[in-house]
Every structure is written in C-alpha cells, then in structure tokens.
C-alpha cells in the first residue's frame, strides 16, 4: 500500500508506451493506482509522477480535477445514486433518501465498517432505466427501494464479487498488443516500411505477432463475456410492440 507494485509498475510502463507523450498516460495509470489501493495514496501519486515525468503536486493537481479519483480512503463499494433530471423525475431523490436511512450515512460518507460509500451522482448515461445506480461503476437500473435493499445485501454477502470488483478496479481486460504500427500513416503507406518502434523511443519494438500474448491477465480470459448482473443497458426498442428496453 504505497507505490505501485512491480506488476502494476510494468503495466504502467506498458500504458505509457502507447502514447506519443508519457504524460498522456497519467489518467489511465492513476486508474491503475486506484485499483491497487482503492484510492490514490500520496506515495502512489509520487511514484506515478516519477513514471510519467511530473512532480507529485502536478499529479495531484490533475487528479483532483476528476470526480472518479479519490485521495482519501473510500468504502469497498462506492454506491453512486444518479439524481439528475431523468432519474429525479422517476424518484431518485427519494431513493437517495432511502439509501441514507438504510446505510446511516449522508452522501459523501462511508459506513463505519468501511464497506459502503454513498454518492449523489450526476447523470450516469443509463437514463432509460431511471432511476439508476452504479456500484464501483457497474450499472444497476430500474431501481426501487426493494431492489436497492436486495442489491446491498447481495453485495454485503459477497454474491456479486464476480461482477463488482472492489472500488478502483475499472477495466479488467488488458490490452494484448503494444503499438505495432506506430509511425505509419496514410502518408507513409506505400512509402518506406514503417519502423518498429515504441513511441517512447526505448526500443526497436516488436512485431505485432510477438507482442500478442494469448490471453489477458487477471484471470479474465475472455473479457467479451463479461456482463454485469442486473445491468440493464437500455437498448433500442424498435422491432415490435413486445420489444421494450431490455430488462
């Protein structure tokens, strides 16, 4: 719990190599840090700064602009209740009030056991399934008090561990290839063969085939299978009277 561990440091270097300038990887690498510790620690931000070439204060300066980054500990589950217009029209504030009573905390607060942090969120882009909440950014739509309560008990019981990783973990699917084509463009197509190189200039690079390991790490062998339980992406309902938004 401090600096990035060796595996994450390597992942950070891989991310940095994807961009023309190291600083561009700052937000993705901060997500990595937040996945490691649940929030951004001062030592971690210092380390990230060293990797992308920034002072720790510059890292914090950028991080503090973004709502998803927390520089103080948060609960294992961050419950974000959207209260923006479409959800508000469907009772989101009443749901939020219920959540406060149920958890015994106000928005911004964390339960004493460190399990839940509650948040009054802006539109989460699931307005067709209003009111909606996310738990560590996994979506749960068409909420009412009963569904909310059962969601919380399933989370507390660990029933949703496979679907909802601890706070901070964002994308569990790793990129399986570097930047094999770097430097090529329509302009250079047909011209001299583009050089294999990493954009940070640290190597001659690897051909695409060699840079393609079999499967993403983290035990997620086929990320395309992932489907958050009870996630309800509101989908076009166009074909006939029976096809409502997928529920």
């Amino acid at each position: 719990m401090a600096r990035l561990n060796p595996d994450n440091e390597q992942r950070a270097r891989d991310l940095i190599a994807l961009y023309p300038h190291p600083r561009s990887a700052l937000i993705p690498v901060l997500h990595l840090l937040q996945a490691q510790d649940g929030y951004l620690t001062p030592e971690g931000m210092q380390h990230v700064g060293e990797l992308v070439g920034l002072e720790a204060a510059e890292v914090r300066g950028t991080a503090s602009f973004y709502d998803m980054f927390h520089t103080e500990p948060v609960g294992r589950y961050l419950i974000s209740v959207c209260t923006n217009i479409a959800c508000m029209l469907q009772g989101a504030y009443e749901l939020l009030e219920h959540a406060q009573t149920h958890l015994g905390i106000a928005p911004g607060g964390t339960t004493a056991d460190g399990t839940f942090t509650l948040e009054d969120a802006e539109c989460l882009a699931l307005c067709g399934n209003a009111p909606c909440v996310t738990v560590n950014w996994r979506f749960f739509g068409d909420m009412d008090r009963a569904r909310f309560d059962s969601l919380l008990s399933r989370l507390a019981a660990g029933d949703l561990d496979g679907e909802v990783p601890p706070h901070g973990t964002l994308c569990r699917v790793r990129r399986t290839v570097g930047v094999p084509a770097a430097g090529a463009s329509v302009g250079s197509a047909g011209g001299p063969d583009p050089e294999w190189h990493r954009r940070d200039g640290t190597g001659t690079g690897v051909p695409a085939e060699a840079a393609r390991p079999g499967a993403p790490a983290d035990g997620v062998t086929d990320g395309v299978e992932l489907e958050t339980v009870a996630s309800t992406p509101a989908v076009a309902a166009l074909d006939g009277p029976d096809s409502g938004a997928i529920r």
Partner: peptide
Amino acid sequence: GEFALGLE
C-alpha cells in the same frame, strides 16, 4: 471513465 463494462 464511468463506463466500466463499456471499457472492458
């Protein structure tokens, strides 16, 4: 960033 499933 909030689109965790989308990112995956």
